[in-house]
């Protein structure tokens, strides 16, 4: 063991001990507490409140409500971070294209058959997670990442070229992804635009009406709780995340020979 490594280990141990000491002195209060923090109580009680329409977020699920309504801006920019990472990766891979001359190899026939079966089953599960995002745990990102399993499996089991031969090319996925992102953005400023047209005060990321902004997305449609903008956000996010992952995995599975033709 070298001297530098010993230094690193010792400093890390000191770091851990000081953290643990501070926590034991009550740096975080009693863990876990009996009552949640007061802000959390407000979130919990105003997540769904049909009797006070100006102080609610119209969904049963508090996490989705926080993610897309109370703190919608964070999630919007989080999507932007994810988008930025993908764009940066595309920028690294700019000019790389996949030739479809070689045949895809893939795995054994047993795996292929079962994967073909699951390609029907899994998107159904994912779509239900996305549609019920405001009622049960789940939402756009969760559904998108569940649906990604299909893409991973197809790419791994059948081979990348098979996917491309089936017609799922890079521009199409990019199109899908951009549509999802633009949908998120338009949902965010939707009420502001509507407010400009009919002359009502409205806020960015507004979902339900507020005391001084009397305009809202529909909360119910035919006795079904749709949760206003939550459903729209979840759907667009689902599309955007799935397409984003598909794009990334496609870039990853391009073979080295193909890449090296363009990059160094």
């Amino acid at each position: 063991m070298k001297k530098s490594e010993v230094c690193v280990i010792v400093s890390i141990i000191i770091f851990i001990f000081s953290l643990a000491y501070i926590t034991s002195l009550g740096g975080l209060g009693y863990l876990p507490p009996v009552d949640v923090r007061k802000l959390a109580q407000i979130y919990l009680s105003s997540t769904y409140n049909p009797f006070e329409p100006t102080n609610t977020s119209s969904g049963y699920e508090s996490v989705t409500a926080i993610v897309w309504d109370f703190r919608g801006l964070d999630t919007f920019f989080e999507t932007a971070v994810f988008y930025g990472a993908i764009i940066a990766s595309i920028a690294v891979y700019r000019g790389v294209s996949i030739s479809t001359k070689k045949k895809p190899i893939g795995m054994s026939p047993i795996a292929k058959t079962i994967t073909r079966l699951s390609t029907v089953l899994i998107p159904t599960v994912a779509a239900s997670i996305a549609f019920h995002g405001h009622l049960t745990p789940g939402g756009g990102f969760q559904a998108g990442s569940v649906a990604t399993v299909v893409i991973v499996l197809i790419v791994m089991v059948f081979g990348l070229r098979k996917v491309i031969l089936k017609g799922l090319t890079k521009p199409k996925i990019l199109l899908l992804r951009s549509l999802g992102l633009v949908g998120i953005g338009l949902t965010a400023i939707g009420l502001v635009l509507a407010g400009l047209v009919i002359g009502v005060n409205a806020y960015i990321f507004q979902n339900q009406a507020k005391p001084i902004a009397h305009i809202s997305y529909p909360m119910w449609i035919d006795d079904i709780l749709v949760g206003g903008s939550l459903l729209l956000f979840n759907l667009f996010e689902f599309v955007a995340v799935m397409a984003g992952f598909a794009l990334v995995l496609m870039l990853f599975s391009i073979e080295e020979e193909e890449v090296r033709k363009v990059i160094k």
């Binding site: 699951s118 399993v149 991973v152 499996l153 791994m156 081979g159 990348l160 990853f252 599975s253």
Partner: peptide, 30 residues
């Protein structure tokens, strides 16, 4: 809470696929 079980089952299967593809093929995306 039960929705988590489906997801867990799905992804562990995917882990199998990765590892076996890693050992049998030259490139993971072939």
């Amino acid at each position: 809470l039960v929705a988590c079980t489906i997801v867990l089952a799905l992804w562990v299967y995917a882990l199998d696929i990765y590892v076996s593809k890693y050992f049998t093929h030259k490139e993971l995306g072939e």
